[in-house]
Write a protein that binds this DNA or RNA. Structure first.
Length: 467
RNA sequence: GGCGGCAUAGCCAAGUGGUAAGGCAGAGGACUGCAAAUCCUUUAUCCCCGGUUCGAAUCCGGGUGCCGCCUCCA
């Protein structure tokens, strides 16, 4: 079995063949940092975090780059409204972005380049495009000549005629053709943020930043380029056009696009104003439940946001957590011994199922169902009267590896020590139970429950977990 | 107008030819001093109508409803 990926470029699932045997280059379009991100934005970052982890699990040395768009119209506008500067605003929301990502368990990319730190690369690219006849300057602005190459529209599968007749493309007197797009924008009066260029003071257009940063960090051709579906056109379409014109080589082998987050039946988007920010959500819900929610459906399908859904995810998450706590409790008293062969066979089977799910276009929904099967298996082991330590350890390792390291949904139960006072209350309760003083025993259990410690009596002694 | 997607149990959600994964919630049972956790059992005319096929949630045709892209947006 090899990994199959649905490629937007071909509209088919294709076997994944990276350019190099052991290295994978991956670029995901990051946020424009003029505000906090919402749960729909987070979907992309969480999902591709899992993709990266899975590729690593599969033995690839992944180089993962994700940019920050830290200068554009919206930043300029937002900075003006808030009475601050563009760099200050960008800095603030970059920090906020990382706080959100940390809460959601998203690992850092290898590089998080910022557009404003790569202006020279963009200027160079634009110059090359002009030299090659793919771009033209008009009064301080530079535009890309979309129709110069006849494959414009190949990613979004729109013919040039269709795009034109869409009639929603911005009309700009300066453009030779409505489909042309800005590579460089001349500074407008009152704008403070600007860079020198051969065409005068200005700033880059949106699309060129990704082309320049991809080229600098990952090369002319990369393996995977990804983002939300809404970036497919025009952003990614324009990126392909200008990058391939610039380098003369294919830009990316696989284009992956996420489905949307919906509110009710409508797409969640900043322009519709129906957004829910991660920053607020993570105060209300377990952030891991948010991560679980984002991975609970196949990435190309839409997900509808609802309070009920997240609550359901929180309940499901408890099942993971209980299982690992119960495993570690059972490990304390388990007899030494190697893992039973049938346990190893079952774990191997689960591994195959997990890989099958992920290999089939990164089906996290199915991968999670395999994780639940592993949890079920663990629960069965834990309740057996005799079980060798090795069986428990291997099962725990499996759950940590697939549920934790790859999916990022399972946490290590860690060192479970309690305060001395609580320990002595537990001890007192055990004495009370021995003396059949169940009233006292139950009172202690209730008291601890109120303090967030749930006690459970098992054949291996009292077990506790935090609520 | 062009291109594309979705419709599966109370809820979430896999499954794209061989008589429906998984989770949440509910019900019953086991275990327990009682609980909890866990385990067992249980809940689906797969939007509608035709067609192809020995066989369709899955393929084809036609409907109905919803959504997206073609403009900034992850």
């Amino acid at each position: 079995m090899t990994l199959q990926l649905y490629n937007t470029l071909t509209r088919e699932k294709e076997p994944f063949k990276p350019l190099s045997k052991e290295r994978v280059t991956m670029y995901v379009c990051g946020p424009t940092v003029y505000n906090y991100i919402h749960i729909g934005n987070a979907r992309v970052f969480v999902f591709f975090d899992v993709v990266r982890r899975y590729l690593q699990y599969r033995g690839f040395d992944v180089t993962y780059v994700q940019n920050f768009t830290d200068v554009d119209d919206r930043l300029i506008r937002a900075a003006a409204e808030e009475g601050t500067t563009v760099p200050e605003l960008a800095e603030r929301y970059i920090r906020a972005y990382f706080e959100d990502m940390d809460a959601l368990g998203v690992q850092r990319a290898d590089v998080h380049p910022r557009a404003t730190e790569h202006i020279p690369g963009m200027v160079e690219g634009i110059s090359r495009l002009i030299e090659k006849g793919y771009a033209y300057e008009r009064d301080g602005d530079v535009y890309y000549r979309a129709l110069r190459k006849d494959d414009y529209g190949k990613l979004s599968h729109q013919s040039v005629e269709e795009l034109k007749s869409g009639a929603r493309v911005e009309v700009d007197e300066k453009k030779e053709n409505p489909l042309d797009f800005a590579l460089w924008k001349k500074t407008k009066p009152g704008e403070e943020i600007a860079w020198d260029s051969p065409w005068g003071k200005g700033r880059p257009g949106w699309h060129i930043e990704c082309s320049a940063m991809v080229k600098q960090y990952l090369g002319d051709t990369i393996d995977i380029h990804a983002g939300g579906t809404d970036l497919c056109f025009p952003h990614h379409e324009n990126e392909i056009a200008q990058s391939e014109a610039w380098t003369g080589k294919p830009f990316a082998s696989y284009w992956l696009h996420n489905g949307y987050m919906n509110m009710g039946s409508e797409k969640m988007s900043k322009s519709l104003g129906n957004i829910v920010r991660v920053k607020e959500l993570r105060e209300e819900y377990n952030p891991r439940a948010l991560r679980y929610f984002l991975l609970s459906a196949h990435y190309r399908n839409p997900i509808s946001f609802s309070d009920e859904s997240i609550r359901q995810m929180e309940s499901g998450l408890e099942r993971f957590d209980t299982a690992t706590v119960n495993l570690s409790h059972r490990l304390e008293t388990a007899l030494q011994g190697e893992a039973a062969p049938e346990v190893m066979a079952r774990l191997d089977e689960l591994t195959r199922n997990f890989e099958t799910a992920m290999d089939d276009d990164l089906n996290t929904a199915n991968a999670i169902s395999v994780l639940f099967e592993a949890v079920h298996f663990a629960n069965e082991l834990v309740s057996q009267s005799v079980v060798p330590k090795g069986s428990l350890e291997k099962t725990m390792e499996w759950i940590q590896r697939y549920g934790g390291e790859i999916l990022g949904l399972v946490e290590d139960p860690g060192d479970q020590s309690l305060e001395a006072e609580i320990e002595s209350l537990i001890e007192e309760r055990q004495q009370a139970r021995k003396n059949k003083d169940f009233q006292r025993a139950d009172a202690i259990r209730d008291e601890l429950a109120e303090r967030g410690i749930l006690l459970e009596d098992t054949p291996q002694g009292v077990r506790w977990r935090k609520k």
